[in-house]
């Protein structure tokens, strides 16, 4: 019993980071069907934005978040307008184009900020752990968990409670018919992509004090994000949440039962098997694609 609560909290912590990383991708992939291989590099860009703001203006991590969202979102918007919108009918080309975009972003950061590992400061009041019911846990990890939930709720409201979300869902269902009803699909796509990129940026900002910041850090995150989205089912926000939770807990249990190397391999194997059995993911939604 004693080890169960820390165990669950480790799983929740891993799950919240996964959710944070995957949320932006789920929006872009789910709504637009764009396989965005540059997602990890948007995460990286977010981390570097915080580093830059902290270095230049000595800002607190939390106050940098709106700037990170705005900046990375703007980069995402530009990418959509200049590159991705020309490739909506060519999904395979999108993979190559977004991958190339990621490489360009990595090298740009390497040239501008250098290849060294960078230091992002944690907010002072979150450095020390908190105690509750005789347990202690990292305050920063709880903070990440809370923000992941907050962003999830914000995204849910955006998609299901606003008119923008209604248009977005309409386009997902059938793009051509939506356009006949006067929805500006191009504008919705651009904003969706910007929102997804912005979320990735925030994810990068939040994980950077706990992990390390380097130009190639995105590679690992994009793999995690795809794992979550594919397992959860492409068009389902609930699926993304559930699959982050499942993968996070599985990772935690396996890592404490053996070690992280085994955990990683077994989780991948498990996802491969599940995808074989449920090709649409755990939470499939019927969508008509034009």
């Amino acid at each position: 019993m004693n080890s169960i609560i820390p165990q669950i909290s480790v799983g929740l912590s891993i799950a919240s980071i996964l959710l944070l990383i995957a949320l932006g991708l789920a929006i872009i992939y789910g709504t637009m069907g764009v396989i965005n291989l540059a997602h990890g590099d948007f995460v990286m860009l977010g981390a570097y934005t915080v580093w830059f703001l902290q270095k230049q203006f000595a800002m607190n991590l939390i106050t940098t978040l709106p700037f990170v969202f705005a900046f990375v979102g703007a980069v995402g918007w530009l990418a959509e307008r200049m590159l991705i919108r020309h490739l909506y009918q060519r999904p395979l080309d999108t993979i190559l184009a977004t991958w190339g975009l990621g490489v360009i972003m990595q090298q740009a950061v390497r040239l501008l900020a250098g290849a060294e590992l960078r230091y992002v400061k944690m907010p002072d009041f979150l450095i020390n752990p908190v105690h509750f019911f005789g347990y202690e846990d990292s305050a920063y990890r709880i903070f990440i968990f809370a923000l992941a939930v907050a962003l999830l709720i914000a995204t849910y409201v955006l998609i299901y409670k606003t008119e923008f979300g209604l248009r977005m869902r309409a386009i997902t269902q059938n793009r051509d018919v939506s356009r006949c009803f006067g929805i500006n699909a191009g504008r919705v796509y651009a904003l969706t992509f910007a929102y997804g990129a912005g979320l990735a940026g925030i994810a990068g900002a939040l994980v950077s004090p706990l992990k390390s910041v380097a130009p190639d850090m995105g590679t690992g995150y994009v793999v995690d994000a795809f794992l979550v989205v594919v397992l959860g089912g492409v068009h389902s926000l609930l699926g993304t949440v559930a699959s982050s939770y499942v993968i996070g807990q599985a990772d935690a249990v396996l890592a404490s039962w053996s070690d992280d190397t085994i955990a990683k391999a077994v989780v991948f194997l498990g996802v491969v098997v599940l995808i074989r059995l449920f090709p649409q993911g755990l939470f499939a939604m019927r969508v008509r694609r034009s």
């Binding site: 820390p6 165990q7 480790v10 980071i17 990890r141």
Partner: peptide, 20 residues
């Protein structure tokens, strides 16, 4: 005795074992 993959960045399970 434990080995993590190269480039690994999620040590919560490992740290849990330190505590245990």
């Amino acid at each position: 005795e434990e080995y993590v993959p190269l480039g690994h960045s999620e040590f919560s399970a490992v740290i849990n074992k330190f505590k245990e």
